[in-house]
Design a protein around this nucleic acid. Structure first.
Lengths: 215, 215
DNA sequence: CCCCAGATTATTGTATACAAATTATATCGG
DNA sequence: CCGATATAATTTGTATACAATAATCTGGGG
């Protein structure tokens, strides 16, 4: 998308994720336009996009507010993500090319390296982890599934989850990725589905444990 | 949403679905604005919306075109819909209120009546069928799931499917709805999931059979 | 003190004008 | 005749002005 519109999207998104715009707070187009240094037009586009991704909700009278997610919402998000990303893994297993599989292996090697360090490099882990999952989704070659999942995978949630992972859990994550690669190499869709389901659901419980308010 | 924007959305969508704007054809903002009798601004919003719903795709240079769905896309759409709507049914089964359940029963009674006529009333069937599914989705009380599903359920596809249903199949559809109601009344999530999965997948195969190009 | 009506303000929706980028076309050289 | 390049036309992106609508404030009456 275009420059101003993209910039507004990134800016508003980070306002929300950083907590500067707390859940439930109102977002006015002119205010955001001033903050972003653009006019209302690209701000409006950004708000629509954030709305489809459920970062933003609207009142009856179409006034935008920062969405307020409760624990049910987050649990449901993980459930949907597990279901859909497992489906993506199953499709990927029978469609992935040897080249992409090699890319996947390389990616997971970087993850393993980041984890093996004396002081695990969580930043690299997160970046490579995201890429790993993106490769799987792309290998599933379903634009529809991809578009649903991008709106569903909340990087801040992933970050909060990984931040609570110890070395053991990070290693286990890398190992699960490895098993997923095996499943893909074996062209075993159901194996891939099972591994991915477990991978996401384990992340969910790690997240829940790290977030007291979810009890 | 607002009037002009909604109107543009409906108009463009119907252009696409009717075939007046064939798959792959280019959509220019000014052209659509003239057709809809509104300015470019609401047309742009409508196009973004249609883009997230994958009715419209954009070229590298952001020019919009009517999306071209192949049989894989449609099959994948049914698969996702089966998975997600079955999940909605499972959630609904344990959350539905007695009042909503009564509404559901009434809705299916109207479906059964439309089907039982000498000359089955397909229009009523479609309207009530849609409402039936909407009630289930709403009873699942997951705004996220609901928003994904509305973008996924293609009414024209449903229509084409139902148009090929004979009385027996229409009756079977109503019967499956009845079984879904039973599952909800019994608060049996897995039963509800299974019934809904079968319901959608049967529709898929009816659709495939009715659409030679899908082979 | 509360509540309602009207006026005022704030905010979103739409139209239009202009800027930037892309695509098509025409012209020139080989 | 073909190809490259410059130019013109088309199209999207952004800014701004105005219109419509919703929220808020104010004052009076009960």
């Amino acid at each position: 998308m275009s420059k101003a519109s993209d910039h507004a999207y990134a800016e508003i998104r980070s306002l929300i994720l950083s907590g500067n715009a707390p859940p439930g707070s109102s977002l006015t187009e002119v205010g955001l336009a001033e903050i972003c240094g653009v006019s209302r037009t690209p701000v409006r586009e950004a708000l629509r996009r954030l709305e489809t991704e459920l970062y933003v909700v609207r009142s009856e009278s179409q006034r935008p507010f920062v969405a307020d997610w409760n624990s049910d919402d987050i649990g449901e998000m993980f459930t949907l993500r597990a279901m859909l990303e497992a489906h993506a893994a199953a499709r990927a297993a029978t469609r992935i090319t040897p080249e992409t599989l090699a890319t996947l292996r390389a990616c997971n090697a970087r993850i393993a390296a980041a984890v093996a360090m004396a002081d695990p490099d969580v930043t690299t882990f997160l970046a490579e982890n995201r890429q790993f999952h993106d490769i799987i989704i792309s290998a599933a070659s379903s634009p529809r599934l991809a578009s649903i999942l991008t709106a569903l995978v909340e990087q801040p949630v992933v970050r909060r989850t990984a931040a609570r992972y110890g070395r053991t859990e990070l290693e286990r994550s890398a190992h699960e990725h490895g098993e997923l690669i095996q499943a893909c190499a074996a062209r075993d869709a159901e194996w891939a589905r099972a591994v991915m389901t477990g991978h996401i659901r384990r992340a969910y419980h790690a997240f829940s444990a790290a977030t007291p308010s979810l009890s």
